[in-house]
Design a protein around this nucleic acid. Structure first.
Ligand SMILES: [Mn+2]
Ligand SMILES: [Mn+2]
Ligand SMILES: [Zn+2]
Ligand SMILES: [Zn+2]
Lengths: 136, 136
DNA sequence: TCGTTGTTTATAATTATTCTAAAGAAGATT
DNA sequence: AATCTTCTTTAGAATAATTATAAACAACGA
């Protein structure tokens, strides 16, 4: 249970003004036990449901991108018509249930360390992500 | 160097009529030494350039999806506004050069075997893909 | 309180992809 | 070869996710 005050501070520390809309989005995104995987559309609908207040779609996009840029959200590479985001910003891997269109976290020990043996001159590794697709 | 005849046979064997357009697309896609990573738009432009003949964008989409369904192309999960495809349909992993927006194949021995230690009841693993993002 | 700057919003624009339906080409049948 | 059927191509319209615009609004500092 994170308090509204903490969200306000977090926003201030990030040079984002703590508006009503952003605080509501924080409640929906970060006030939970487990990691949360979502699309913009999921989030848009949840805000109305959970807070009772409507936030415009444009603001949801703006805020998600602001949080993404600040490192509070992670973008998950999937081929879907919608982009997926994740509140778990640590390096970790995923199951993707293709039928349910649902992401599930994998612990690093569920996959084991991945050592990339190849390198490209002038480039360095930014991230290593494993995506395990599941079917019935 | 694959001959036109071989493409025609391949198409016939797949219950796809060997039209001028599909043969041209085959030339562009499969008449090469190295694996080829592309977006629909890349391909659309290359067809005109390499064969001198124009194929409608709708046909490029249709054909790529037909080939994908037949297993002649692989879809690569990346967060990009465009979908990436790959002529290398074996199980393999990728570098993605974020700046250049370019995919590079990783050999399986460059990554090593990946053992997934977790399972979801009622689901089985369809694919395991590693995406290594590169930055400067 | 006032002025400045950042934010929200409705709406329009953009863009990748899919749909539609008519014209054309391939393959089979005579 | 002429005809028939089925599949394919195509231009253009439709769809849908995302981004841009610009006016109204809210937060902040003075
Ligand atoms: Mn996750
Ligand atoms: Mn590849
Ligand atoms: Zn983002
Ligand atoms: Zn496809």
């Amino acid at each position: 249970m994170t308090s509204k005050q903490e969200f306000i501070e977090k926003l201030r520390n990030s040079n984002l003004r703590p508006t009503k809309q952003r605080i509501n989005i924080c409640e929906v995104l970060f006030n939970r036990d487990k990691t949360f995987h979502f699309t913009i559309n999921d989030l848009f609908n949840l805000i109305k449901d959970k807070t009772g207040e409507k936030v415009s779609l444009a603001t949801v996009y703006n805020t998600v991108h602001a949080f993404h840029k600040k490192g509070y959200l992670k973008e998950i590479p999937i081929n879907s018509n919608q982009t997926y985001f994740d509140t778990n910003v640590t390096d970790h891997h995923h199951f993707f249930d293709v039928k349910e269109e649902k992401l599930i976290d994998l612990k690093n020990e569920d996959v084991g360390p991945i050592e990339i043996q190849k390198s490209i001159p002038g480039k360095k590794i930014k991230s290593v992500e494993v995506l395990v697709k599941l079917e019935d």
